[in-house]
Nucleic acid binder design. Structure first.
Lengths: 253, 253
DNA sequence: AAGTGGTCTAGACCACATG
DNA sequence: ATGTGGTCTAGACCACTTT
């Protein structure tokens, strides 16, 4: 024959690059190790920097690489499993929940949330801001919308805002009997605020977990939590979750 | 004073573009409507095509747009909620599950899955391929790994492969008593095979749902399901899920 | 054949972190 | 000051769908 009649559908360069890099990561690199810079890598592979970046972007999306402006590109550790929507339903802020309250303000929620909250469109609700840290790294940022009707006894609390008030709202929530909770996960991108909180650039991919807490047949609270998609694997249902390993990938010295 | 001393941190053009486009989508466009082509849009906004594309990519990632090569860019409908990990644990292939079996082969699973499956590294297992369609659109593709030990009575089945054998394997699974299941969700990108199955380009963002089915204290099956991240919102726990609406967005005529 | 989005290039400049 | 990744440009060509 002579010519190998394959390549009738030549795969894009960045795709091939990604494959090569993935194999290199699996076999020749250690977690935490820094890669050559983009200009050198591009030259080494004989492609334009933009093409190389296309491959690196995908690898970062898959949690294999971590890139930081001004610093460099490093090999990322395996994603950490973070548990969401535990089997035994529980209010946020209860014992053994991984969050810590940051702030609380009284605000009118975005129009997009009016329906699931069952509040009037212009009705102000308590907005509790919480953050979640795992292994010393911020992994999620949450906005918890609590209609005033869900925490009727919120009096005698002098703090009009701040972490103290946030904890007070969460404490009052526990008094309600939780019927059930509804969860949803979808892909999103970090807004300016979440990006700062998660130590990422705006637009970074995030997993958005929306939880509706139902009590007495009504939505007593609505949580919108954004998790770093590059570093997190969300586990739910029963304990733990499944560990997936890439390759040899030793620990960097 | 004079100059508005803001813009000390000027936001990137593509970010601003994304904001403008989002507002336009919310107020001036209908679901299914086609946008002007990229060259025209770029010219209209006075930016390079690559910059415009950066904005469009993010909007597609967020499920607001749908782009198809050779066709154009259209306004995407709201994401559809697809239920995963139903509350009442059940084996795959049971009554009222949304999947349909496609194929089944006997293969050695990728090394990365050996540990969660608890099989020997070189042990072949049944690999059932299933696909899931919702509203006439493919939304997910699954590989279900079933160790031979989990389906001991798989004899008298003459079909060595194909959909018939796949259904047989699933049927045999029901005989085991399911202890519990462990779920995890993470972000990934479609490989060549999944991309074809999901009607997307390779590298498209997907939500990977890994489920480990536990019976008699051992992993009796392992499912790796990849969902289209652009069109799907995964719901779990109790029924339904939370509906989020963007804006007016009328239905296209 | 025409029109669309997808890939690729070779540059330039900017924002950020570090020495 | 230097080096990194992030943004942006103005072009070119390719793969695909539709007419």
């Amino acid at each position: 024959m002579g010519t190998t009649q394959l390549e009738s559908v030549p795969e894009p360069k960045y795709w091939h690059l990604k494959t090569v890099l993935t194999e290199a990561l699996d076999s020749e690199f250690s977690v935490g190790e820094i890669l050559p810079n983009e200009r050198d890598l591009a030259a080494r592979f004989g492609v334009a920097r933009a093409t190389l970046r296309q491959a690196l972007e995908q690898l970062e999306l898959e949690g294999r690489l971590q890139r930081r402006r001004g610093v460099g590109t490093t090999v990322a550790p395996p994603r950490m499993g973070v548990s969401v929507g535990s089997e035994q339903h529980a209010w946020p802020g209860g014992p053994d929940d991984a969050w810590h309250a940051v702030d609380c303000r009284l605000e009118v929620p975005p129009a997009a949330l009016a329906e699931p909250l069952v509040t009037g469109s212009d009705e102000a609700v308590h907005v509790v801001r919480r953050s979640r840290v795992s292994r010393g790294q911020p992994v999620a940022s949450e906005l918890l919308y609590v209609p005033a009707a869900s925490v009727p006894d919120l009096s005698g609390i002098d703090a009009p805002s701040g972490a103290a008030r946030a904890r007070a709202v969460l404490r009052e929530l526990q008094h309600l009997e939780l019927e059930r909770q509804e969860n949803a996960v979808e892909l999103g991108s970090a807004g300016a605020a979440e990006a700062r909180e998660l130590d990422r650039l705006p637009g970074a991919p995030v997993l958005v977990v929306t939880t509706r807490y139902i009590a007495r047949g009504r939505a007593a609270a609505l949580s919108v939590a954004t998790y770093r998609a590059d570093t997190c694997r969300l586990t739910f249902g029963d304990s733990g979750g499944v560990e997936i390993h890439h390759g040899p990938e030793r620990q960097a010295s």
